[in-house]
Design a protein around this nucleic acid. Structure first.
Lengths: 120, 120
DNA sequence: CTCGTAGTACGCCGAGTGTCAAACTACGGC
DNA sequence: GCCGTAGTTTGACACTCGGCGTACTACGAG
């Protein structure tokens, strides 16, 4: 069925506005290893947009969809359809405006921890 | 009973070592409004230690205990007994060493959001 | 039109979370 | 020794989360 979906043929994805982004939500979204990894990959190429299938995640498609949804609903990423693919991009501008320095500190911390674990 | 507790009369609280602190755990600990508030209060007076009862939290004592435990086990705070009271302090040195700039960015973000909500 | 690929939706499950009340332990003061 | 205060523990509850499979809906290629 998907009631309001087939109406115009355009599935609008609900994104929180910048003002609606909650710090707790962002932290919760980033407290999952899979999602943290997605964000790190996304941040590595801030300009480029990646499709969901680009990521080599250790979970199934439905779980992937779930994680991307959490990231989108918490305001961390932005999603847009392009053909059958769905492109994902970091909302760096919004996050930097709301919480200056937070994203960079977070990414640096994640990179640092990844390096520590690797060299363990 | 509390087996190894009454032995010496000193209840040692298990803290993760600096190397054991995981970024995901810290983010998860801070993704709860109650715990984020505790950390903010703690950070306001980094030198001072506060007892659990010092905080005016909208939850019962047992829930408070639970939140403090999550914070301690994730490596965010350090706890020590002093008489019947349990003093709580931020592990700022460890966190700054592990994730430079993260705590400051987090606290600034929390303060910024609190101000935005207040002026809503 | 048909088919394949990309992603979604739904339901299910086990595990974990936040909350509470109630019973308990520990310490200090009387 | 007794009592009150501070905090813990336990068990219960509703809820959420992360994971899965399956069935489904788009869109593009042929």
């Amino acid at each position: 069925m998907t009631p309001a979906a087939t109406a115009a043929g355009i599935r609008e994805l609900p994104h929180p506005t910048r003002a609606e982004i909650r710090l707790e939500g962002v932290l919760h979204a980033l407290s999952d290893p899979v999602r943290l990894r997605i964000v790190r990959d996304l941040a590595a190429d801030s300009d480029a947009l990646f499709s969901c299938s680009h990521f080599d995640l250790p979970v199934t498609k439905s779980t992937t969809t779930h994680h991307f949804r959490v990231l989108r609903e918490s305001g961390v990423i932005r999603q847009a359809y392009r053909g059958t693919a769905k492109m994902n991009g970091l909302r760096r501008d919004d996050l930097d405006a709301l919480f200056p320095g937070l994203l960079d500190a977070l990414l640096a911390a994640a990179a640092r921890q990844a390096a520590a674990v690797a060299g363990d």
